[in-house]
Amino acid sequence: MAEPLLAIRGLRKRFGGLLATDQVDLDVSEGETYAVIGPNGAGKTTLIGQLAGDLRPDDGAIRFAGRDVTRLDAPLRSRLGLARSFQITSIFPDFSALANVALAVQAHTGGSFRFWRPAAGEPSLTRPARAVLESVGLGGRADVLAANLAHGEQRQLEIAMALATKPRLLLLDEPVAGMGLEESQRMVRFLGTLKGHVTIVLVEHDMDAVFTLADRISVMVYGRIIATGTAEEVRGNEEVRRAYLGEDAPPPC
């Protein structure tokens, strides 16, 4: 069998007395959409942080696209094709939407020690940036200052920036957090269109989103993965219902 795109082995991260990541093993195959769910404080964001390269794990190894990336920092991982969104929207507020995405294109086309030519006048940056903005539905908002976009649009912009880096793996930290029902449905539909084109690992609270999108799901509680399987399997898992959903909770649907 081919090596999975992302392979995590024995990952551990401790904050003082708290074991935020406890012996996590995880494999994500190329093309799959993989979700990690779990109650608040289960260590999901810590996991994303370690995958993205912002946090250094205490122990364990992360392999991505056939190479050990455990010790690589975030910019290097990004250049290997690992893109992310943040739990709290993270954009360049004082640039236009187009410039935000053009920056992401620039980061991956090299040659940023160029001092003379205006970046905004380089079709090699703006053309792909516009195309990505179109694809996430922000084509008409290209020249708006990112700070002035609506919250949902800013989240779309963040995804656009991630996509502009032509990633092999997209890490999404609660992509529909803080969105209204309609906005979040639109986002889920959009993420659905990415399925198969790009591998996605998402961490999410919103069960509808997870069960709609994910091919496989891992349930994380207190830093440990207690179950992994398809939506059906996870829904049916007794341990999951006890630990995560609460005994009395009806099965999520």
Binding site: S78, F92, A107, F115, R117, A119, E122, L125
Partner: peptide
């Protein structure tokens, strides 16, 4: 320029600049 965009981006939001 491209260079200027990078330093302005890092000023605007450094974690984001690193993430891309």
């Amino acid at each position: 320029s491209r260079f200027g965009m990078v330093i302005r981006a890092a000023r605007s939001n450094e974690p984001r600049a690193r993430a891309i």
